[in-house]
Nucleic acid binder design. Structure first.
Length: 259
DNA sequence: ATGGCCTGATCTTCAGGA
């Protein structure tokens, strides 16, 4: 079974590449982030023609998450239980579903913007709520993973040059502590293989030729429970999908499971 | 190749992304 996570940076803009990738990559379950659509605008019909059901939690131009599956889609939970909200809005950043033998949660963690911004405090509270929300799934014997854009680089090695991130979000002690809390709660970081260069970056800024220069970050993560970790046979970043015209600024992270 | 981001909406300018 092949599952993956991909921040598509607008499913409308990415639709031709997304459909082609699903047809060619052998992916059974895909966790999607930044759909940037309403649920009504989500291309469920086109995906159904390829054999995929869709669970969508999306409200408009910002955020939006989904799970598409061709191996079943049950027990869908839209939204994050205990979501702290931002400026009194509960943004669509989490959706969970059971897809055949595996349960997954697609997450788009708040960016944080600046360390002294209210969005950063929201980000840390959001992580707290996530940890509580997934406790039961983590403890279950079912393979379970929280997959998505975490907007945190777990270590200094997960950015192209840590000195370029002095004072920035995504690399702070508090954000990394939030990841550590998830690991202590029973989730393991399933680190993918890079298909080129030394480190499995998953995001490269559109600007300043960051992708050709491999100035990337590893911020799209797969955190799996014990049963999930035992089932993993391979994992890699599909950097080919970051190339060329009409690419997202994130590449898919693919995980193969023996289930 | 000697470059210099992309998206959708408030739509020719902006916020947000990270």
């Amino acid at each position: 079974m092949r599952i993956a996570t991909w921040n598509v940076n607008s499913i409308t803009a990415r639709l031709p590449r997304l459909l082609a990738w699903l047809e060619n990559s052998g992916t059974d379950v895909l966790c999607i982030q930044e759909t940037k659509t309403t649920a009504e605008q989500f291309p469920s019909d086109q995906l159904r023609e390829l054999g995929y059901e869709s669970a969508v939690h999306a409200t408009g131009r910002w955020n939006g998450v989904a799970i598409v599956s061709r191996v079943g889609l049950d027990d869908v939970v839209k939204g994050l239980e205990g979501d702290p909200g931002y400026e009194d809005v509960h943004e669509p950043r989490s959706v969970a579903a059971t897809c055949g033998p595996v349960r997954v949660r697609s997450v788009y963690v708040p960016n944080g913007r600046e360390v002294d911004h209210a969005h950063y405090a929201y980000k840390l509270r959001w992580f707290e709520a996530l940890k509580d929300a997934v406790a039961a799934d983590v403890a279950s014997g079912t393979p379970f993973a929280v997959m998505g854009d975490y907007n945190v680089a777990p270590t200094d090695e997960d950015v192209w040059d840590i000195t370029a991130f002095d004072g920035s979000t995504h690399v702070t002690e508090a954000e990394r502590a939030a990841l550590a809390a998830l690991r202590e709660a029973g989730l393991s970081d399933i680190v993918p293989r890079p298909l080129k260069y030394d480190h499995p970056f998953t995001y490269w800024d559109y600007r300043q030729l960051c992708f050709p220069k491999n100035r990337g970050m590893r911020i799209d993560l797969v955190y799996g429970n014990e049963a999930f970790g035992k089932a993993v046979s391979d994992s890699y970043v599909d950097r080919e999908e970051r190339k060329g015209k009409g690419a997202s600024d994130h590449a898919p992270v693919v995980v193969d499971l023996d289930v």
